[in-house]
């Protein structure tokens, strides 16, 4: 029973820490690219430990949120304490404005090292993967495509939806994967020629992945390049859709949070970042943000039952995406002849 004392001390310490955390109050304002329905579960979980903090969320699609923030930073007054965007977008804003504070949450050590932000500004929340989603009423399991390359088959003409990089921040991960990563793996069938060929199939370029999810579910565009988070929502909702893990692998972007240097409520903002990497919040990620946890000690299976280990996940190059955003949009537009 020699262990009793340290354990008791640890519990007491944890309780005190909880009480210190409970001292946080006031409003916590979060600009989020993650939909309200995804944020809700996290807010409820956070609220249990921090009942006095009034968490307010303002949701905009990622690329629109980026320009909203850009303008607010130019006006010198960002309207929020925290921002929820992917790592590449936070890095881009930080390059331009140095607006974010660095912060290392208490349990950051438990987070897988390859997803951590070396600069310390963005705190990883989960990994969101690109995969194929298809409508099971319109496409049978035998007919479904099994690779990114299959999307070039003419039989998918006018059936595919894809996010427009001019208005979606996330799709830049997919474009990087096809235009940069796969060719670097000596895979000659990819690169920008892939998008030129894809353009022949007349995919519908939509502004957000949520719209694409509904188009796939309704059958209007029965096949889509989609994010895991939306596949998860479809599964929760009972949509007639299913997922495909493409043979070439899946680019994984890191959904993150970061706090502004001059946040009005820095205590609450830090508490939120601590919470995000806690085992409790990480266990919620699949149901909340709809993506894979970033801690190895949290068990996870994809909505179709696939184990994380069975999927080839390629972490995206956030620095490349942040630096090359505009020229990637130009190259994409050129490939699509617009």
């Amino acid at each position: 029973m020699t262990m009793t004392r340290p354990v008791a001390l640890a519990i007491a310490g944890a309780l005190m820490a909880t009480q210190a955390a409970q001292a946080q109050d006031g409003a916590l304002r979060i600009y989020s690219a993650y939909p309200d329905e995804h944020m809700q579960a996290l807010i409820e979980g956070f609220g249990k430990a921090h009942p006095d903090v009034d968490v307010q969320v303002s949701v905009q699609p990622g690329e629109q949120l980026l320009s909203t923030l850009e303008l607010e930073l130019r006006a010198g007054r960002p309207q929020a304490d925290l921002v929820g965007l992917n790592q590449a977008s936070i890095a881009a804003l930080q390059q331009a404005h140095q607006a974010f504070a660095t912060y290392a949450p208490a349990e950051l050590d438990a987070v897988r090292s390859e997803v951590r932000d070396p600069s310390g500004t963005s705190v990883p929340a989960c990994v969101n993967l690109y995969l194929l989603q298809y409508n099971t009423n319109a496409i049978s399991e035998e007919d479904r495509p099994s690779s990114w390359n299959d999307l070039l088959d003419p039989r998918w003409k006018s059936q595919i939806a894809l996010a427009d990089p001019a208005s979606s921040q996330s799709v830049h991960s997919f474009i990087w994967f096809i235009s940069e990563y796969l060719p670097s793996q000596q895979d000659g069938s990819f690169g920008w020629e892939y998008f030129e060929k894809l353009a022949q199939n007349d995919p519908r370029l939509e502004r957000s992945h949520g719209t694409i999810r509904d188009m796939t579910a309704s059958g209007e565009r029965p096949l889509a390049v989609q994010l895991l988070a939306n596949g998860q929502t479809s599964a929760n909702r009972g949509d007639p859709t299913s997922l495909v893990w493409p043979e070439e692998g899946s680019p994984g972007e890191i959904s993150s949070f970061a706090m502004f240097e001059n946040a009005a409520n820095p205590e609450a903002a830090r508490a939120w970042l601590d919470f995000i990497v806690s085992a409790e919040a990480q266990a919620m990620m699949p149901a909340a943000l709809g993506c894979a946890p970033v801690r190895n000690d949290v068990d996870y299976r994809f909505p179709d039952g696939t184990a994380v280990g069975d999927v080839t996940i390629v972490p995206v190059d956030a620095d490349f995406i942040a630096a090359e955003r505009d020229s990637q949009i130009d190259r994409f537009n050129a490939a699509f002849g617009r």
Binding site: R29, Y31, P35, D36, E37, Q56, S58, V59, Q60, P61, Q79, A80, R207, S208, H209, G210, T211, I212, R213, D214, N230, T233, R237
Partner: peptide, 19 residues
């Protein structure tokens, strides 16, 4: 922040933030 109106929030729900 916090200045979504009926129309902008409806458009955002339509564009995937709700469906």
């Amino acid at each position: 922040f916090g200045t979504q109106t009926v129309a902008t929030s409806l458009l955002s729900v339509w564009n995937g933030n709700g469906g």
